Simulated scan of single mutants.
Amino acid sequence: MKHFSELSPSAERIVNAAEDLVQQFGFNGFSFEDIAQVVGIRKPSIYHHFPSKHELVAVMTQRYTHRFCARLEDIEASFGGATERLQGHAALFSESLGKEGRLCACGILGAERNSLPESLRLQVKDFFTRNVTWLENVIVAGQKQGQLIDTVPAAQLAQLWLSAQEGALLVGGTYQGPTPESIACALLASWQR
C-alpha cells in the first residue's frame, strides 16, 4: 500500500475526491466512476494509482488521520489550558460540519465498519485511539491544574467527549441540531471547577 506522502499530484487529486465522497456518502456510497467524474479522468487512470477502492480509502484514511493529528499538535502549541484545547478540538469537528454538512471521514467509516476490510477497520480504530489518547492527556492536565473535575476518570471523559463530537456531526447535520462547539460548551460547563 502507498503512503500518503508518496502521492503524485494526480493520485492526490483522486484521494481528495475520495475524501470528499466518503464525507458525503460513506465508503459504500461511491464508486471509482464517481471519482472519475469528480476528477475528470477515466476509471483506468484511477486503477493505475490504486488497484482497489479499499487501498484508495486506506491511503485517504491514513492521510486524514495524519492531518487531524497535526491539527491537534497545533492546538497544543497555541493553547495552554485544557478548556481552550478542548474547545479547539471541537472547532475541528465544526469545520467538517461547516463544509456542506460533511461528517468526519473516520466517523462515517466507523459507522460502516462491518462492511470494511480488517486493515481499514484498524486504521479507523487508530484515528479514534489517537483522539482519545490526546483528549485523555488534555483532561488529565486540566484535572491536575484544577480546571476540570476529577470525580470522573479522564479516560471516561475523553471517550464521552469524542462520542459527543462525532454525534454532534451526525445529529447536527441531520436537522440543524447542536453543533460540536455547542456540545463542547455544555460539557465544559459541567466539567469545570
Rank of each mutant, 00 (worst) to 15 (best):
M1A: 12
L7A: 01
S8E: 08
S8P: 06
P9Q: 05
A11V: 15
R13N: 07
R13D: 07
I14R: 04
N16H: 07
A17W: 02
E19P: 03
E19L: 01
V22D: 15
Q23T: 15
F25Y: 10
G26T: 10
G26V: 04
F27M: 05
G29K: 00
G29L: 10
S31F: 11
D34M: 09
I35V: 12
A36P: 06
G40L: 03
I41E: 09
K43W: 04
P44Q: 08
I46A: 03
Y47L: 06
H48Q: 01
H48A: 08
H48T: 05
H49F: 11
S52E: 13
K53Y: 10
H54W: 13
H54N: 14
H54V: 12
A58V: 07
V59K: 10
T61H: 02
Q62V: 01
C69N: 10
I75W: 08
A77G: 03
S78L: 09
F79K: 09
G80S: 08
A82C: 04
R85Q: 09
Q87F: 03
Q87R: 14
A90W: 04
A91S: 15
A91L: 11
E95F: 13
E95H: 13
L97Q: 15
E100Q: 12
G101R: 05
I108F: 08
I108Y: 10
I108E: 05
G110P: 07
A111E: 12
A111W: 03
N114E: 14
E118K: 10
R121S: 09
L122T: 14
D126Y: 09
F127S: 05
T129N: 13
T129H: 03
R130S: 04
N137Y: 07
N137P: 09
V138T: 13
Q143D: 04
K144M: 02
Q145C: 00
G146I: 01
Q147A: 14
D150P: 00
T151L: 12
V152Y: 07
Q156F: 12
Q159H: 08
L160G: 06
A164C: 10
Q165E: 08
E166N: 09
G167M: 03
G167R: 11
G167C: 11
L170V: 14
L170W: 09
L170E: 15
V171C: 08
V171P: 06
G173P: 05
G177L: 01
P178F: 00
P178D: 06
T179P: 01
P180C: 00
E181Q: 01
S182I: 15
I183V: 13
I183S: 03
A184G: 11
A184T: 08
A184Q: 12
C185R: 13
A186N: 09
S190W: 08
W191C: 04
Q192M: 11
Q192I: 14
